[in-house]
Amino acid sequence: MTSILYPRLLDRAARELHQQYSHATLEQLQDRAAFAHRSAVFAATGGRRVTEDELRDLRNRIVKAAENAGFPGEGRRADRASFDLEVAQLLHERSGLVAAEASVRSLWAFFALVLLPDVSYWRYPSPPADRVIGTDITRHVWGRLWWRAHLLALPQQVERYRLLDVFGEAAFDQIFARRKSLGGSRVLIRALAETWPSIDRGGVNDRQLLRDVLKRLLRTSVIVEFEALDEDELRRQVAEAAAETVAFLAEDTPLSGRRHAQHE
């Protein structure tokens, strides 16, 4: 696939914009939305440059999704979660980005600070710099959504994005934060997502469970090549790691704590 190249917003300009926008109202930010910036440049790598029409289309779609979630009003928390899922799929399906290009931080700074400043600061009011500048893609308001879709998308066309909502935001952050060790293996992340709903939690809360399963898988990855396994076997090993976690953690979880955890 030929990548569509997006402008990269230079670091200094990104920091200046973030400083200005931190004190701006949503109405002012709506006026600042643009399709180009004098400090945004295209890199001379393979691919073709995104057109203004494509940027406009992407912006319109994301703004519409935001309006459905209450933008510019505060909206409900649940609406923002569904907004994230919708935009994750939308960005992945329609941006034409390939993974190598989507790893470039300054491109996401362009999305947050030039193309969608109003929606960015609505989604994360008073955000720390990494939410918009892209110092850490795993935290970036738009970059983390594209990556969530990329890591969980299935290789088929039908119901390609059905695993997107398996993990909540905090849970996916745990996986994504381990991108360089485990999270870069899409077959493993998909196996985890396929297995996750059916795990018998035995009262162990999701956050603890996931953290410990990831630790176990990381330890195993030193001696086992997950990429060599068939999907069924990979799911079996993930389920096994989860069962070990539950057995291990349930011993330390008092019964009252287990009842509480089930309602989280």
């Binding site: 993974a99 190598a100 989507a102 790893s103 991108r179 360089k180 999270g183 870069g184 293996s185 899409r186 077959v187 090549e225 990429e227 060599a228």
Partner: peptide
């Protein structure tokens, strides 16, 4: 037994099976 080639790229931090 299997012989497998896995690729891993530093830019994207992704990896995958290339051949088995």
């Amino acid at each position: 037994l299997d012989l497998t080639v896995r690729w891993a790229a530093s830019n994207s931090a992704l990896r995958g099976r290339a051949w088995r």
